[in-house]
Each structure stands twice: as structure tokens, then as C-alpha cells.
Design a protein around this nucleic acid. Structure first.
Lengths: 201, 201
DNA sequence: TTAAAACGTTAACAAAAGATAAGGTTTTGA
DNA sequence: TCAAAACCTTATCTTTTGTTAACGTTTTAA
């Protein structure tokens, strides 16, 4: 199977982090693997170390904790985004949540082992450090905004912002997952929707 | 003034991110500057790009947003920790919150300009990439936990956890700042304290 | 030293959210 | 295709939080 088109797509998308030279890319792509997930397949589970970082070619992933038997969704990743239990991937400690495909999903994976091999390969080590740094810095910026939203906004304000800035999510994600993402219960989100609908009608 | 002892302390503390060789350290330390902040002095303000990252030798810093004239505290940094409006520092876009000394505070600063000079100095560029990467990765791990606390815990649970794991903070930080940090109002925290005190009495 | 500001608690009331359950619709999967 | 599961809404009741204000104490700064 020829995955050239997908690899080229990945290379292009990764430019927002770092640009690989042709020589670097030839090395880099040898460390990649493709993997398909059916809906409900798990990318990561609690208690196991997350060994991979993935790039989503198509599909979507849901991150959730289980607390007293109840699933609580904390995050989503969609196509052209990365997916990983980052803390576990970095620290090599057991992960604490599930990451599950919520659609048929195809990933391009890099294993921790391959990451480390590249970090020790002088031909590409520097670029890999840059790559790892930019990814981490990118996510820090996202986290800064997300934490601020919990500190300075009410659930209703978070919902309205999300509707404005990421409205497409509601077309793909069950609403009770979104509720958890906003830090509230599904019942509460349903009420907020009813409340705020009237304002714009 | 001889700051050798403080620089050696910094070098030692930074080992949790990266170890500098003697040669690298000689270069690195030339790009550092010391700065003192009186209580209530600002390290960063909204609308300005944050040009520095700081290491706290002594003292403490508070991060807060102003919303409708009200200050809302989102974070603190203490001695031996870093301080920065990270997103602004990284993206060179205007910062959106205040960072203020809440005690007399001494920082060792690296400017963005000096950071970039080192990134372009072959003698130390690789180490700087590693350094930047490890810092970012460290903060991602912190953020992962912090976001999870908003998703899966109630304010009361967040308070009890904080009391257990970071009790000393309450000795240095006014309680209404802590309340904001937990995502609630000062009045609500006062009630939670009253509620939970009885359980342990 | 002393007046002003900051701080924590409490009260009273309103608003929002959580918990539970029921009902109807849609989706899923055998 | 059809029964089961998943999903969203609504209702009821309880709990928690927000808002505002008052009060007493502590800290700050002139």
C-alpha cells in the first residue's frame, strides 16, 4: 500500500511546528507507522504507559476519565491534530484516562522508542528537539486558554464561546460529552441551551 | 555585586530540566540578569508582550485577570519556580493578564532576545532547544492535572486536595486569591471551609 | 500612630447546578 | 428489520454557588 500522499500531507501539516528538510524527512518517515481504529477502539487506557503519539489523518478521538463508574469526557482531538496521553508519554508513568476513537479513525503513529532513537541520531536529533519543543509549546498555549476559561467564565459563557468558535463540534460529538468538556452535567447543558436559545430567537 | 551563589543555585535547580556543561553554563549565565520586585510591582501587564522568563530566587508572584473591574487570580509561582506569561512570551502577542509580585521578590531573568541569540549560537543552540522543550513539557504535565481537576472534581474536592498537597500556600496567600484559583468566589470558599472543618474536628 | 484598606466570616436571598427519574426520539447492531 | 441502547429534554427536588451587604479583625501605609 502506498501511503505517500498521507505522508506528504503529514509533512505539510507539521510545518506549523517545524519544517523538515528532504533528507530529514526521509529519515523521519521511516519511524512512522499507520494504524486504523474502529469506533470505540482504545488508543490509551488507564494503568498502561502511553507508548505512542499519533497524528489524526481522519476521524476523532475522545479523552475521558472514569469516576465511580461514570465516564467524564475531558477533551477531543480531530483530523490534522495530534493525539496522545502526553503526560504518560513524556514521563513513562501509567496513564490515568481513556483515549477512544469515536469515529473510524486513521492515525500516523510515532512510538516513544522511535522518538528516542531519533533523538540519538545526529542527523535528525536537533530537528526532533525542535519538533518536541514546538509541540509542547503549542499545547501550553491551548492549555493557558482552557484553564483561563474555567477561572474567568461561567459554564454558560464557556458554552456560548464554544458554540461561536467551534460550532462544528456539536455536529459530530454527542452533547453529553460536550457537557463534560465544559465542566458540567448533560442535564445542566440542556438547560443552558434552552435558556440561551430564547435570547437569539 | 557577586551573584555567583545565586547563579550556582539556578544551575542546580535547572537540572530538573537539563544539565549544562561548564562551557555551556559560562555562555548561558552571560545572558541572565537579576531584577528585584517590590510587593505589588508588575512582571507583566495586559496589552504588552511579555519579553522575559524569570526564575524566582525568593518571593512569590500572582497571575490575575481583570474582568469588569474585578481581579480574578488564576495562578501563583513561588521560589525555585519559573514565572512567565508563557503564551505571550512564545507568540510575541500582547499578554492578557497581570503578573504581580505579592511579596518582595528577586528574579533571574532571560529576555526573549537573549533566548533567540542563544538559539542561534551553535555552541549552545542544542542545549537551549532541549531546555525550552523540557520546560514546556513540564508545564504541560502540570496543566493536564489542573484541567482534569476542573473536569472531574467539585470545588470542595479541589479545595481539600489543595489543602492536603499544598497546605503551605494558605500561609502565604490571602484566601480570596486561593478561592479564584479554585474557580469559585471567596464567599463560597469560606463556606466550604466551614463545612469541611466539622468533618475533621 | 492612626485612619484607611484589605481580609474573612456570616446572613439572606436569588440563580445555577447536581441528582434522579421519566418520556420520547434516534441510532446502533445483531 | 427490530429490539436494545444511546441520547436529549423535561420535571422535581436538593445542594451548591453567586450576589450583596454588614461586621469585626488585621494589615498597610502615610
Amino acid at each position: 500500500m502506498d501511503n505517500t500522499i498521507h505522508l506528504n500531507h503529514l509533512r505539510s501539516e507539521l510545518k506549523k511546528f517545524v519544517s523538515f528538510s528532504d533528507a530529514e524527512w526521509e529519515i523521519f518517515k521511516q519511524y512512522l507507522e499507520f494504524r486504523h481504529y474502529d469506533k470505540k477502539d482504545f488508543f490509551a487506557v488507564p494503568g498502561e504507559v502511553c507508548d505512542h503519539m499519533g497524528f489524526i489523518l481522519c476521524g476523532a478521538m475522545r479523552y475521558f476519565h472514569v469516576r465511580e463508574g461514570i465516564e467524564i469526557t475531558g477533551y477531543f482531538s480531530f483530523e490534522n491534530e495530534l493525539v496522545s496521553a502526553y503526560k504518560s508519554f513524556l514521563t513513562r508513568k501509567p496513564n490515568t484516562n481513556y483515549i477512544q476513537a469515536i469515529e473510524k479513525t486513521t492515525l500516523i503513529l510515532i512510538s516513544k522508542k522511535n522518538f528516542e532513537l531519533m533523538e540519538n541520531n545526529p542527523a535528525i536529533a536537533f530537528k526532533i528537539e525542535q519538533f518536541g519543543r514546538r509541540i509542547a509549546e503549542y499545547y501550553i498555549c491551548c492549555y493557558e486558554d482552557r484553564v483561563a476559561s474555567f477561572i474567568i467564565q461561567s459554564p454558560e459563557e464557556r458554552y456560548l464561546d464554544m458554540q461561536k468558535n467551534a460550532g462544528e463540534i456539536f455536529l459530530r460529538i454527542p452533547q453529553h460529552y460536550v457537557a463534560n468538556f465544559l465542566g458540567i452535567t448533560p442535564v445542566s447543558l440542556s438547560r443552558i441551551r434552552k435558556r440561551t436559545l430564547k435570547v437569539h430567537a
